[in-house]
Nucleic acid binder design. Structure first.
Lengths: 153, 153
DNA sequence: ACAATTAAGACATTTTTTGTCTTATATAAA
DNA sequence: TTTATATAAGACAAAAAATGTCTTAATTGT
């Protein structure tokens, strides 16, 4: 009953992108990995899932990297997490009724359904814009990576 | 982010005991296992943990079995689940701040803390007495297995 | 062309969970 | 007291899930 490492990394990745220019700039995988303390190759797989979910865009080639596709104001924790680990649930019987012969008429099952809905709602209510207003999990607290223009300058 | 099988089994076990006489009677491991569709030897280990937590009493020898020690009105889902899987949490950083260098000042961490508290509160509010008033997850409604015909009748 | 960068996915490792088995012990009843 | 019926305790095995690494190929900017 806990968030997987992959889910945590996905959140860190998006936090990092949101902080460093949001939908406007590209951050390399290396930089995101360093920022979020994420194994670089593991991040690659996570990014691919975030990309398939339409949350980020992956740019190949030299000067490639990741770019946020959704504005931090419109992106919730729930969206990112469920893109990584699938729909959140707290007990098997909520998503796989066949795992318990009585799910449909079960009082315990109803509690888990309710708890799940409550949790999803809580996470849906938290946007990355909101999170950015406070401190963050990244190593580089305030530091921004140089934008393309700044690099060229 | 889901209840383990062991946790689910523990809930079924307590439900079964609560239904079959509550704190007044002893139910054999075999019967509880059949009732809750739980591997018998696995149940043994689960029962031992419930016993250590003071939730049930284990009676050895012929006619031995398990007996509920806490009245269903005073026993919550949270108590049983946490007896099995430890304190509930949704993200590592909530219980192991060292898993993320920024936990203490992290906005995401705060969300997980809040979500955890909310979930625990929900589960704490559900007693087994309440659950018993409705349908249940156990195969055995009373003392025997209902056939399909009996169910339909 | 070359250097930098990610894609894709196979592979390995580790951790967690689930389940089984064996030997020992306790209890009820004949 | 002996026997049948239970559980205790924990070693062991198997399965599943999560995490991490590596290799080959493709893409892009200079």
């Amino acid at each position: 009953m806990r968030l997987t490492r992959a889910g945590e990394y996905a959140v860190r990745c998006v936090m990092c992108l949101a902080r460093n220019g949001g939908t406007e700039s590209v951050v390399s995988r290396q930089d995101v990995a360093a920022c979020g303390d994420i194994p670089s190759h593991f991040l690659a797989k996570i990014a691919q899932q975030l990309s398939r979910a339409g949350i980020i865009e992956i740019l190949q080639g030299a000067k490639g990297g990741y770019r946020l596709l959704v504005a931090p104001e419109k992106l919730s924790l729930l969206t990112v997490i469920e893109a990584m680990i699938g729909e959140i649930f707290l007990n098997d019987c909520v998503v796989r009724p066949e795992s318990c012969h009585a799910s449909l008429s079960c009082a315990v099952n109803k509690v888990w359904m309710q708890a799940r809905d409550q949790l999803r709602q809580t996470l849906a209510g938290v946007t990355f814009a909101k999170l950015l207003q406070e401190e963050s999990c990244c190593i580089l607290q305030g530091d921004k990576f140089p934008t393309q223009d700044e690099k060229n300058a």
